[in-house]
């Protein structure tokens, strides 16, 4: 038996919005540690690695590890039937061919449940080694969304150049070119508004803006995003999943393969 109850159900709705445009289907691997999902997009350019920690749920029961194969568009549609302030419970029997979602209103005067068929998925996992990245850039998630959106006007790719002076995002195309430079924040009252660069080595890499724009769908989960880069390895973009109190409930990480010279 698997059962997980999340009082701040809107977090699960936001998690689904952050992955449904990138992935068609994926397995939720449920264990005593929590619910994990790792899947690549169909072209194998980007990967999502997502964790919802068991102690982030108000109730969490997982008698034995199970893998729930899910059509993510279907799950997203069902979660749209939950109100933003609903409590969401996910339930699946061992060896079941369906998963149940229960939505309770805060006053418990409206309870709905939806059963969804599970899929048999042949999932392919990638081993991602723990990496010491040459640069880790932390910035407001809204700022990163804006940069990716604005530079998409100019081209398909962004060059991210991280040096000790700050970070420069550049794009060029038929109509011209654009650059956005962010300096490290000197004094910031609010931590979530800071730009912080932790750099061991300067790095310049090129990435597809189309995929970065998919990743920014996770911005509602977190006020900050971190970009971790090293030469000639995929970019890692991480949004921490925090509840209203700011406690960590897990993360959404995206990996994106760089573009290289032909």
């Amino acid at each position: 038996m698997f059962e997980a109850r999340l009082v701040e159900g809107s977090l699960l709705k936001k998690v689904m919005e952050s992955i449904k445009d990138l992935l068609n289907e994926a397995s939720w691997d449920c264990s005593g540690n929590g619910m994990c999902l790792q899947a690549m997009d169909s072209s194998h350019v980007a990967l999502v690695s997502l964790m919802l920690k068991s102690d982030g749920f108000e109730n969490y029961r997982c008698d034995r590890s199970i893998s729930l194969g899910i059509n993510l568009a279907s799950m997203s549609k069902i979660l749209k039937c939950a109100s933003n302030d609903d409590i969401i419970t996910i339930r699946a029997e061992d060896d079941a061919d369906a998963i149940t979602f229960m939505f309770e209103s805060p006053k418990q005067d409206r309870v709905s449940d939806y059963e969804m068929k599970l899929m048999n998925l042949d999932t392919e996992h990638l081993g991602i080694p723990d990496t010491e990245y040459a640069c880790v850039i932390k910035m407001p998630s809204g700022e990163f969304s804006r940069i990716c959106r604005d530079l998409s006007v100019l081209g398909d790719s962004v060059i991210i150049c991280c040096t000790k002076d700050g970070v420069r995002f550049s794009a060029k195309g038929d109509l011209g070119n654009g650059n956005i430079k962010l300096a490290q924040s000197a004094n910031v009252d609010k931590e979530e508004e800071a730009v912080v660069v932790d750099m061991r080595e300067a790095v310049t890499l090129t990435f597809s803006l189309r995929y970065l724009n998919f990743f920014t769908k996770a911005a509602p989960l977190s006020s900050q995003v971190s970009l971790s880069m090293s030469e000639d390895v995929p970019l890692m973009v991480e949004y921490k999943i925090n509840d209203k109190e700011g406690d960590s409930k897990g993360y959404v990480r995206y990996y994106l393969a760089p573009k290289i010279e032909d």
């Binding site: 690549m40 072209s43 194998h44 350019v45 980007a46 990967l47 392919e124 996992h125 990638l126 081993g127 991602i128 080694p129 790719s157 090129t206 597809s208 390895v233 995929p234 990996y255 393969a257 760089p258 573009k259 290289i260 010279e261 032909d262």
Partner: peptide
């Protein structure tokens, strides 16, 4: 520029 894929960097498990 050429788009690489993740399997050029990470091994399948």
């Amino acid at each position: 520029m050429e788009q690489t894929v993740l399997t050029q960097f990470y091994l399948r498990q």
